[in-house]
Design a protein around this nucleic acid. Structure first.
Lengths: 117, 117
DNA sequence: GCATTAGTTGAACAACTGTTCAACTAATGC
DNA sequence: GCATTAGTTGAACAGTTGTTCAACTAATGC
């Protein structure tokens, strides 16, 4: 692993930093991780996810529940789909969305727990 | 709880929606939750958090480790502080940061796990 | 006191994000 | 076939966000 660019300070705990550096992952992994959490970083999307925790719903249901347009909901569902957080099935004219796995619930729960402290 | 504004569709599964609505929290709670995850939604911040998982470090250490300026790091640490994700102690000229609690590690771990699937 | 270094902070600017709007596709029923 | 409704999508625009820069505070050592 090559040296990082110079920061604007002189004294550092080089031994500590080197040790930490060994256990750091590639920068891209952190960017991917951040991209995942970015999805949870929007009020509309966490509402959708929390709603889907209780029942699968079609786009109209979600739009009605949250007081949004189908378009706005669909855009957000697309983001959730691309991050593999929701799955869907078409039934006639309706497309039913549900949570992809239980990571979603776990993450939301821990988040709520942190806020309650 | 008052009715939501009208969405742009006719047919909805009102029984399902009403049942889901009963178990939804206040909108503000979702906004707070989203604000928390927004903090995890940046590559620099998750790098800082993951680094602090291994050892407390001063601002310069982190800046050197990640190849950033003290200013950039300090701004991000402020965001992390305001969300109660990190704590700090001053020792002379240095300010040492560390994780506030183990929610941080748990959240990062589940995030990594989701990505690996 | 002064000089130096660690760290913070506000403003500014570029990059990104979420909703709206309009146009579109997909399925149903006539 | 056509009309209707569910859902998707791209462009546009306002609002937000992260880094940089410059100015600042805090602690140390002389």
């Amino acid at each position: 692993m090559e040296k990082q660019p110079i920061c604007d300070c002189d004294v550092i705990h080089e031994d500590v930093v080197d040790k930490v550096r060994e256990n750091m992952s590639e920068k891209d992994e952190y960017i991917d991780l951040a991209a995942l959490f970015k999805i949870f970083g929007d009020g509309t999307r966490v509402q959708i996810l929390h709603a889907l925790e209780q029942s699968e719903m079609c786009v109209c249901d979600i739009a009605y529940l949250l007081g949004l347009t189908k378009s706005a909901v669909s855009h957000q569902l697309k983001a959730l789909r691309l991050s593999n957080l929701v799955k869907f099935r078409r039934e006639g004219q309706n497309v039913y969305y549900s949570l992809a796995d239980n990571h979603v619930k776990t993450i939301l729960d821990i988040g709520f727990e942190h806020l309650r402290e």
